[in-house]
Amino acid sequence: MLKLSQSDPAAPTRVVIIGAGGFIGAALSHTLARETKVVGLGSKDVDLLSNDAATRLESQLATGDAVVFISALTPDRGRGLDTVIRNLRMTESVTKALAGKAISQLVYVSSDAVYDDATSLIRETSPCNPSTFHGAMHLTREIALRQAAQAGKFPLTLIRPTAVYGPGDTHGAYGPNRFLNTAAKEGRVALFGEGEERRDHLFIDDLCALTSRCLGHRTEGVINAVSGTAVSFREVAERAQAVLARPVTIVGSPRANPITHRHFDTSALRAAFPTLPITSLDEGLKRTLAAMKA
């Protein structure tokens, strides 16, 4: 659940984005730059795995800064324990850098992978029971950052996004971006099973808008970043085909795992930000395709 410290939104004087070079970080930098001063830090600016990372990061932070921590090695960069350890070392650098710094707020972009796979209707109070290293890593990071926030007495916002898609996504994960790509380039979309699983897909701009509001209201707590609409992967593929306006072969495959669905209860999101616009899947696909063509 989210607590709003400022009922009237006011952008922080300066926002430091740790992980500004990635898909979400770049889009967020672009969005926030329209509202306030943004310092975007990528791995070229501060390598969070280096021995002097904490010192170098600390030198970039000023009193009163709002900090957004996004940087993470995503599953496409490795799914093993070594990736978890590197991600945690990066977190350690961040928490050390934050120690003693009077920042105004920390926003951490976590993941819905922290929740139990078996839960089909998820809300912010649902038990966290990750089944993957990726989910466990995010949950461990959340705990570490909670401790840092408690020690530093600054508000912490944990944003747990579902699968995010849109222009600039380089991960190629199973979902809208990959479907659009393969449909455009190869004229086909390959599904696991018949693509029956229903999932929530969030357009990148919506995540940026939500993060902006969390900063503007100096929020504290947990919020799921979701669209509130779960559709099957087959439906995503069919809509990608419709957006492309050309025939696409949608191919199923023998099912390896049982069908599970994942929906989100958006009550907390709606309570915190009743006017937050959510981009429809059709619109999101159209805008992603337009960016691909550009």
């Binding site: 089909s120 209707l121 229903r198 779960a230 599970t260 669905h261 929906h263 989100f264 209860d265």
Partner: peptide, 9 residues
């Protein structure tokens, strides 16, 4: 059915 439709059960 609740898992498919996203209702609380």
């Amino acid at each position: 059915a609740a898992a498919l439709h996203g209702t609380e059960a």
